[in-house]
């Protein structure tokens, strides 16, 4: 089973992602911020990540930048979540190394579609 990590400080968003993706046949692990994600990633493999932009401790951009410097994560699909769809913000995400982008609010269908696409 493919494993997806959701990194978000909001419990309800994590829960929504977990129920949606596990319903679509993925195993989902959670982290509440960038630091926790890094810690968990040192203990397990994941095939894709859904990462919130704005988080305490370590935000999404910093997390992606850090991950892209680790050999095992050069090509792991990382979808960023944000509430802003401004070009500037999306460019920042791309520069940091994000694979794709989703603007909140999104529907469970959208999420499943995006994850299917990056994992196919």
């Amino acid at each position: 089973m493919k494993r997806v990590m959701t990194v978000d400080d909001s419990a309800s968003v994590r829960m929504m992602i977990r129920v949606t993706l596990s319903g679509a046949g993925y195993e989902v692990v959670e982290a509440t911020n960038g630091l926790e994600a890094l810690k968990k990633l040192s203990e397990m493999d994941v095939q894709a990540m859904v990462v919130d932009l704005n988080m305490p401790e370590m935000g999404g951009l910093d997390l992606v930048k850090k991950l892209r410097r680790i050999p095992g994560f050069l090509s792991t699909p990382i979808i960023m979540l944000t509430t802003e769809s401004s070009r500037e913000v999306i460019q920042k995400g791309k520069d940091a190394g994000a694979t794709g982008w989703m603007v909140k609010p999104f529907s469970p269908e959208q999420l499943v579609n995006v994850i299917r696409r990056v994992l196919s």
């Binding site: 309800s12 829960m15 319903g23």
Partner: peptide, 22 residues
């Protein structure tokens, strides 16, 4: 938004959202 999800899951999602927002 959550047509895909069964009712009871949707309910508990909402409860989580409420609690978190409070």
């Amino acid at each position: 938004m959550n047509e895909m999800l069964p009712d009871e899951i949707h309910e508990s999602l909402l409860a989580t959202f409420r609690e978190e927002s409070l």
